[in-house]
Nucleic acid binder design. Structure first.
Lengths: 291, 291
DNA sequence: CATTTTAGTTGACTTAAGTCAACGATCATG
DNA sequence: CATGATCGTTGACTTAAGTCAACTAAAATG
């Protein structure tokens, strides 16, 4: 390439810090020091334990105590006793405090929108952005249980359907496929997991239970920018663990030979190919694994 | 896509600030406050005018004066009078100061290397990094004159040759082509320009003069990650301006139909196709423009 | 050549951020 | 139920960062 990796990364660092700094500088012009603004952000719309705030902000307890006091005298926050432990406090934003949080976010969003709007090819930029973010945040991507009916999960599923439509010859239509009922993919019958990176869902996988000893793995998907990081394997392992905990003895799944990465993953993860076990029109390969 | 652009950008911001922060935190552990470390960096290996430092760091003159004083008492820097204007001072690093600067850079480089090393696909990551950096720093990409024999220019030229080898059917070998002599691409006969983004060269273009009224445009190239930002057009305009200033009346260039973006650019920029004017084996389209 | 401007220095001050130790209230444990 | 640990509060302190105004020396200007 035309320059060594280190200088490319450092140039990236310079570009990013000088351009993206404005997103974090939304606290400027609101007449409040950075520390207090960060605390408002850390409390969040739903409140937070004081200990948790201290943890996320990596701040001394004396300092946090004072910052909270200043927010309280400003009428932006209030402290409540933790009903479970009277030593602990829970910080909540007052309506005025929530308005302040919204104002910060609105400023930051406006900067973000301006940054994207003035770019000639925002699509390509966003794809690269996703890839870099997933790569850098790699170690902080967690697999968490989620409700398949809620926003983040549904966006993943829609992206999954869209990708199937592009990759399977003849397209894909969810309504023609045996779409698992959401209750089959939520406890106690089944489970659903999201791979979450810095608050953004970048992958999913579902366990469709039937109440019996046989269950199915459904909807394994990883966002294009987050591939190559081993997320599909982590999602599968989590699904298998969940199946094991539910007392399921046999797992099955169906897939399509147009998705060779997936097929390879199943083979490497100890799955064995079996005969067709349903009449869904889209899959053409079927696997099974005994737990 | 699976999430809205704003949240994708904000997630990128979180990922980048928490991972890349270490590159900038190289001043930690060297027992010196951030301000002083930034001044050391701003002075740089070659020294800098005090006014220039104040400008790049956006710092109050009283504060800078004190920071410099502390560096001087530490034996890391020294102030010299500007021979041209005795009011001005020029700051230089002592050998100890330069060692300190090197130590900062070494720490930062080590962090950068660790970051790249632990990634499974550093090539793809670096490509995305280049694209994002070029996009974000877009408004700060400058076209600057350069010597085609020096490092940054030669790396661009090599990348250009490599790309030709991939894209032209039958490959490309510089030694078979009429490689312009570097003196033909430097003043007073010609010129050579680099597109520089945050210190990294991301494109080039050369003007090969002959001393007479006809000159050639050579080696127009833009790094893959920096395409779509209008850099080729800016480079061409700069070359044409330089030709005009050198009193050149007619510009010519040769290119290959395997490079349709380039051909389209020339057509749109007022160039007209002409007959072959050399016997170079690689080009198959020829253009001319009267200034 | 007198006046104004500019570049850097210095003293006095403010604010933000953070540390340390002591303390009271509450909880966990033997 | 006595003891020790934990959680948040408070007072006293430090350091970093930055502002303001006065000042000196050296250009620049009319």
């Amino acid at each position: 390439m035309f320059a060594d990796p280190i200088s490319r990364l450092r140039r990236f660092n310079r570009a990013v810090t000088s351009e993206l700094g404005v997103l974090d500088n939304s606290f400027l012009g609101r007449g409040r020091p950075l520390g207090a603004a960060r605390v408002i952000h850390a409390i969040g719309p739903d409140g937070a334990e004081v200990g948790a705030i201290r943890n996320t902000l990596n701040i001394d307890k004396a300092l946090l105590s004072r910052l909270l006091k200043s927010l309280i005298t400003e009428g932006l926050a209030e402290l409540h006793e933790d009903p479970a432990d009277a030593r602990r406090r829970i910080a909540r934003l007052t309506p005025a405090g929530r308005a302040e949080l919204d104002a910060y976010n609105a400023l930051s969003d406006a900067h973000a929108r301006a940054l994207l709007d003035r770019h000639p090819a925002p699509g390509a930029l966003l794809e690269a952005i996703d890839l870099v973010a997933s790569a850098l945040a790699r170690d902080r991507i967690g697999i968490v249980p989620a409700d398949p009916r809620r926003d983040a999960a549904r966006r993943c599923l829609e992206a999954y359907y869209e990708e199937l439509a592009h990759r399977i010859a003849g397209g894909f239509d969810v309504t023609q496929s045996c779409d698992p009922d959401a209750t089959d993919m939520t406890p106690p019958r089944g489970a659903f997991f999201l791979a979450v990176s810095d608050g953004l869902a970048v992958g999913c996988a579902g366990l469709k239970g039937s109440g019996g000893p046989v269950a199915e793995v459904k909807r394994l998907w990883v966002a294009p920018g987050a591939r190559g990081l081993g997320l599909a394997g982590r999602l599968m392992r989590r699904v298998e663990d969940a199946a094991h905990d539910l007392g399921i003895a046999t797992l099955r799944l169906d897939t399509n030979s147009a998705l060779p990465e997936a097929v390879a993953l199943y083979r490497n993860a100890g799955w064995t190919e079996i005969d067709r076990f349903n009449d869904d029109p889209y899959p053409d390969i079927f696997f099974e694994k005994h737990l």
